[in-house]
Design a protein around this nucleic acid. Structure first.
Lengths: 149, 149
DNA sequence: TATTGTTATACTCTATAACTATA
DNA sequence: TATAGTTATAGAGTATAACAATA
């Protein structure tokens, strides 16, 4: 029903940055999540933990929580599943027995040896497809993430 | 446990574009979702439907589904809640009685008259905070969204 | 037979906070 | 008393598909 109220201001949802970011992130993540799940049987939280372990060697839950945009409970649950799959192992930190030390098992190491080159190829493919726009996207995201917006 | 396997390739999660997009979108959406909820009592799906109605006047579920990155059931559920709040109304399309015609009520119109300027101000604030990086982000997102990556 | 829209259902993700163990 | 980590639980969000009404 058309009202006789004053017209609303113009607003372009497609030009609204939070909307664009949400759509872009959803598409990108879904594509990747499908690959991780189908090929390796892991979720995105599990992938983040594995990457951090591949990079940092031996870390605690707290280390990951602080660096990988995950809550403590998420890290803990992801780690539990990864242990059940035999991809990571855990032992006590003798210096502070509240802390755990997590690391890749040989099986986890082998999987990451397959997985990481694929992720690098995916990133490279993205860069190729976006061409010059890729560097601009990076600069924009850098500013957004740095300013805690 | 350090293994004697060949070292894994370097991989920087913080430089991985899907990760950065996910973190950026999450932060941006959460901030906004809180504002919509606290000030207007609506969710993001409801907000998307309202914006589309404010812009397009009278539309069907199908119209919104096609244009606002939402599934049919999401639109339908959001519309139901908005009707219950008295923000939108609905009637049958006489030309095709399977279609509904949704439009803002005066109450919904009044709310959007408050809400849209706030969204515009938020967008403007984002642009100001990002400065030169804003246009680069836009170019990057444009390329990403256009190429269906 | 196909399309629009709604809804039941199940599933997953996310968040809170209670809990154990240790410092 | 504070911190690390785990887990129970609840809530929100998401997806599938079955359904009624209409074309």
């Amino acid at each position: 029903m058309t009202t006789d109220m004053p017209p609303l201001p113009e607003f372009d949802l497609y030009g609204f940055t939070p909307y664009r970011l949400a759509v872009a992130a959803k598409r990108t993540s879904e594509e990747l999540a499908r690959q991780y799940r189908d090929r390796f049987g892991i979720s995105i939280p599990e992938w983040r933990v594995l990457v951090h372990l591949a990079h940092s060697g031996e870390v605690s839950v707290r280390d990951i929580e602080a660096r990988v945009a995950m809550e403590k409970y998420e890290v803990s649950r992801a780690a539990k599943r990864l242990r059940e799959e035999g991809l990571i192992e855990r032992r006590e930190n003798p210096a502070d027995r509240r802390l755990v030390i997590m690391s890749l098992t040989p099986k986890g190491h082998a999987m990451m040896a397959d997985l990481l080159p694929m992720a690098k190829a995916h990133q490279q493919d993205l860069e190729n497809r976006l061409g010059l726009a890729f560097r601009k996207l990076e600069v924009g995201l850098e500013a957004l993430l740095k300013d805690q917006i």
